[in-house]
Design a binder for these strands. Structure first.
Length: 960
DNA sequence: CAGTGAGCGAGCTTCCGCTTGACTT
């Protein structure tokens, strides 16, 4: 660890130096202490279930506890930052970027009690063994434990890759020291992710929409989904024809008939779907005249003519080729493949799979569920082989055990594969009484896959047959077919992987039998059917296929695949249509912004490059600070890692921010002059026609690739959206209920004014002022779904004239406004308490109301009573109270007000905490408010938003 | 994307990876 780059949590108390793990001490075996009792050791692992198991193996001289994951992290937000660092410029990030990227670590609030427990446990032992997972995160957790607990006894690192008695015993005998370089690598990863996430997300808030997010993993995941949708949108379907022929091999053959397809005419291949590009045309190599690759597309007329000309013609077997077919079993499950198969076979979401697997793990049915390894322990291999032998016989078990060493990109392989627990696997039948539902089905899947992984290859034969003939019109034609027979099923008897629905592959156990044919043999065509086909766009990603894609790119970890899917849905980037993941228009805008302005950060190989460089840090050949500096501040080009780039992230989110045109970012070109614009209130269509902007609403559930010209035209042609409530019997206008900027409202559709006659050469006359339709906001409790025509007409009747003020003669009206119902007399207004009063209040009552002074604050009778009274503020010595305000509860001493933060509650807040909030608020108050730098007449003043009160502090406000 | 009248404290949103328990309805 680079000296001075890590500040420990302020609340870890005493600052005595933590002993270095191991520190050169070699305490291999528990030696007897001076008092003669055996050495007691505390072992800390990550998972509680693991702790219980290991405790059993190690016995009473050991105390095994679980840290339950990480115990410290960077602060999530301002609320988590300890008072000591509150004011720091870097507090928002939790990383002091100007001081060697020193991280600020705090004990995760939920883990405070856990840390206390561990401290307690430490008191009664002589030695500490940090037995967190043997990967980057585990090494970091071990270091955090050391740095937080600051034990005064010897500390050593213990690692194991499987939970079995021999493995644990061996681990205790082979302790090592903490690997500080690896800890550095983890910290670098953590800081990079924080800087990326917390610097880029605010750019999205400013340019697209608040609460959006960007991150190394989620942004690439979103981009993948968007990229696929773009392909689908750009896709041009091609149609092509061929001829399906049912061949007849004669009465002796079995099967007598078999299907085949026209593949060549006069030696030139007939084009199939694969020969067409996404533009709907033959790919250039297919269209070339090169005899080897050349292909010709057959159209309907050609196919029909040829089928006709082949009627009754002699056909001969031209070639018969058979090749042996073998298939190896699939590797045992790891997290990603389990999620994929449970998704395909059981239709479980990744999240559902993990919840079920967690239960199975906790109850001792399976091994650890978050793993990127396909390795089985020796005892598990034995168990699988024994089970296979029992169930299927010796022939199904190969002589040598199978080892699966296929490495996944960036794998850390801290655990075994996911498999049934124990040295003897329980069959699904054996656990059926104890486990049911999802858990049973998932266990069965895991059990089958594990057993199958130690079984013999499937064997069979693949046969290819070509049949030739000549059409009456002279063309030489070739038909082809292929078949597969499985002579020995091997592992397929136990487990067949499911093919992704939409990918259109063929399952490994698919069989199609062909008769025994010999070259030169005559066959006849029982039927010749011209068939039309069309090419399809690449299918959308599903949860399983997206996880596969991320895994192939080395993005995300076993513990995060399920949450990645959740995050991109929660942010509104992706929604599920059945199994398919469909990107939203917001995702198009966000991905577009990232691609244009943060291209490197959403590169598909960004993570891969990062991993290489983290490996270099872990190996001690690359400096953490230097590398982060390159990433954040930019650096001397060339010498930095590939993740670093000239300019650096800081500049990209700072100075370069102004270059990002929000309007352009939020306009997604669809076709011609039509764009989808992502607005504050959702996406809508826009195009310029005759110099005027034409807009149309986009239905929420319309997938982007279904927005065709026809659909767009139809949307534009709908004059108004909104639910029609019927016709106003008085005016004859149609009344509709709509969702507007300020919420739901009703309005009337006015008939189009007659177009004035166009006079050639005459100056276009100024159009007469358009009559404005009446509008009215819905009352609370009404909805556009349920409102009736009667209610709507009542709303449109407002404002209501109550009468004239007897004193001044001014008109008093009752109307519904932004803050609810109110009376209006000139510029003087009074709020009403009830919307119904708009229709019922009499002139006398109104006059009475106007006699009352204008109320401040809430529209309740007396001054708002405080929610709670507190003691005296330590600073101002004034009594404090909690009040309810526009932004929720706040504390005030009469002068200073401060909102309660997340985590504060009205009932439980203490005087100390309240004083602290007030003090913080006062500290901020005298912030010099810069006058908004206004460029006079440089640009049109933006329309004032109702909520926009203060001038935006930064430049480049959202322009829509 | 409708247009209507006050005045009161802004503060927060967000990342990725480790782990699961625990407020109540």
């Amino acid at each position: 660890m680079t000296t001075g780059t890590t500040s420990s949590a302020p609340d870890t108390g005493e600052d005595t130096g933590a002993p270095k793990a191991g520190g050169g001490r070699r305490t291999r075996t528990p030696a007897a202490t001076a008092t003669g009792r055996p050495t007691r050791r505390l072992v800390i692992v990550e998972s509680g279930t693991k702790a219980a198991k290991i405790q059993k193996y190690l016995g009473k001289d050991y105390v095994v506890e679980a840290s339950v994951g990480h115990i410290r992290d960077l602060p999530r937000g301002a609320a988590d930052v300890p008072a000591k660092h509150k004011g720091e410029a870097w507090a928002r990030l939790g990383v002091d970027v100007d001081n060697s990227f020193a991280p600020l670590y705090i004990i995760t609030p939920e883990k405070r009690s856990k840390v206390a427990e561990l401290r307690e446990a430490l008191k009664s032992v002589d030695e500490l063994l940090l037995a967190t997972d043997p990967d980057r995160e585990g090494e970091a957790i071990a270091w955090h434990l050391l740095d937080t607990l600051k034990p005064k006894i010897p500390v050593r690192r213990m690692v194991f890759h499987e939970i079995s008695e021999p493995a644990i015993r061996a681990a205790v005998e082979n302790l090592r020291d903490l690997d500080q370089d690896m800890v550095d690598a983890q910290e670098t990863r953590r800081i990079l992710d924080r800087l990326y996430g917390y610097e880029v997300s605010p750019v999205l808030w400013k340019k697209v929409m608040p609460k959006l997010s960007a991150g190394r993993v989620q942004s690439v995941a979103t981009r993948i989904v968007v990229a696929r949708e773009r392909e689908r949108m750009a896709f041009v379907s091609a149609s092509y024809w061929d001829i399906a022929a049912q061949m007849d091999a004669g009465a002796e053959a079995t099967p007598r008939q078999f299907g085949s397809r026209l593949v060549a005419i006069d030696g030139t291949r007939v084009a199939t779907g694969r020969d067409f590009g996404p533009d709907g045309r033959l790919k250039s190599d297919a269209a070339s005249t090169d005899a080897k690759n050349g292909a010709v597309a057959l159209d309907e007329a050609g196919a029909r003519r040829l089928a006709e000309a082949l009627q009754g013609r002699d056909l001969t077997v031209e070639s018969v080729e058979s090749k042996p077919y073998t298939r190896k079993p699939y590797a045992p499950f790891m997290t990603s493949t389990l999620q994929q198969e449970a998704g395909r076979k059981l239709r479980f979401s990744a999240d559902r799979t993990m919840r079920s697997a967690q239960r199975l793990y906790e109850n001792g049915y399976i091994t650890y569920l978050r793993t990127d390894s396909t390795t089985l322990s020796p005892s598990a291999i034995d168990a699988a082989r024994n089970q296979a032998r029992e169930l299927y016989g010796d022939a199904y078990v190969p002589a040598q055990p199978r080892q699966y060493t296929r490495k996944v990109k960036n794998a850390q392989e801290a655990h075994e594969a996911i498999r049934p627990a124990g040295d003897v696997f329980r069959t699904p039948g054996e656990i059926a009484r104890e486990v049911d539902g999802d858990d049973f089905r998932l266990y069965e899947l895991i059990w089958q896959r594990t057993v199958a992984s130690q079984m013999a290859d499937a064997r069979g034969t693949t046969m290819s047959i070509r049949i030739a003939g000549t059409a009456a019109t002279g063309e030489a034609v070739t038909f082809a077919t292929s078949g597969r027979t499985i002579t020995f099923p091997g592992f397929l008897k136990a487990y067949v992987e499911t093919v992704d629905d939409q990918a259109g592959g063929e399952a490994d156990d698919a069989e199609s039998r062909l008769p025994e044919l010999t070259k030169g043999q005559a066959v006849t065509a029982a039927s010749l059917t011209p068939e039309g086909h069309s090419t399809n766009p690449p299918s959308r990603f599903t949860e399983p296929s997206l996880i596969k894609q991320l895994e192939d790119l080395g993005i995300g970890r076993p513990s995060t695949y399920a949450s990645i899917i959740k995050t991109i849905q929660d942010r509104g980037y992706v929604w599920k249509k059945g199994q398919a993941l469909v990107p939203s228009w917001i995702a198009f805008a966000v991905v577009g912004l990232l691609e244009h302005h943060f291209g490197r950060l959403v590169d598909y190989d960004f993570t891969a490059a990062m991993e290489d460089e983290l490996d270099a840090i872990a190996a001690g050949t690359q400096g953490r600070t230097h590398w982060l500096s390159g990433f954040y501040f930019g650096g001397d080009q060339g010498s930095e890692g590939s993740v670093a780039r000239a300019g650096g992230l800081k500049k990209l989110v700072g100075v370069n921010l102004e270059e990002i045109d929000a309007r352009e970012i939020n306009s997604v070109p669809v076709f011609d002059d039509v764009v989808v614009r992502v607005g504050r209130y959702g996406p809508y269509l826009e195009r310029i026609r005759d110099g005027a902007s034409q807009r149309a609403n986009l239905p929420e559930d319309l997938p982007p690739d279904e927005l065709t010209r026809e659909v767009a035209e139809q949307l534009f042609s709908v004059p108004q959206e909104g639910r029609s409530l019927g016709v106003d019997p008085i005016s004859g206008h149609e009344i509709v209920a709509k969702e507007g900027r300020y919420g739901p409202y009703v309005t009337e559709l006015l008939p189009e004014p007659e177009a004035p006659p166009v006079v050639e050469g005459a100056k276009p006359k100024k159009a007469p002022a358009k009559p404005k339709p009446r509008t009215g906001s819905l009352f609370k409790g009404m909805s556009t779904e349920t409102i009736t025509l009667e209610e709507a007409l009542r709303l449109l009747s407002l404002p209501r004239l109550v009468g004239a003020d007897p004193e001044s003669g001014e008109e008093i009206t009752a109307q519904n406004g932004r803050y609810g119902p109110y009376l209006k007399k000139g510029t003087d207004s009074r709020s009403l308490t009830d919307e119904e009063q708009l229709f019922t209040v009499t002139l006398e009552e109104a006059v009475e109301i106007y006699k009352q002074p204008k109320q401040r604050g809430r529209r309740t009778a007396a001054a708002t009573p405080p929610l709670r009274e507190l003691g005296e503020d330590v600073n101002s010595k004034k009594p404090m109270v909690i009040k309810d305000g526009r932004f929720g509860p706040y504390v005030t001493d009469g002068e200073t007000n401060a909102s309660l933060r997340k985590g504060d509650s009205v009932e439980q807040i203490t005087d100390e905490r309240a004083s602290e909030l007030l003090a913080e608020r006062r500290a901020k108050a005298p912030a010099p408010k810069k006058a908004p730098a206004r460029k006079p007449a440089a640009r049109k003043p933006a329309a004032k938003k109702p909520a926009a009160k203060r001038a935006p502090a930064k430049k480049a406000p959202v322009e829509k």
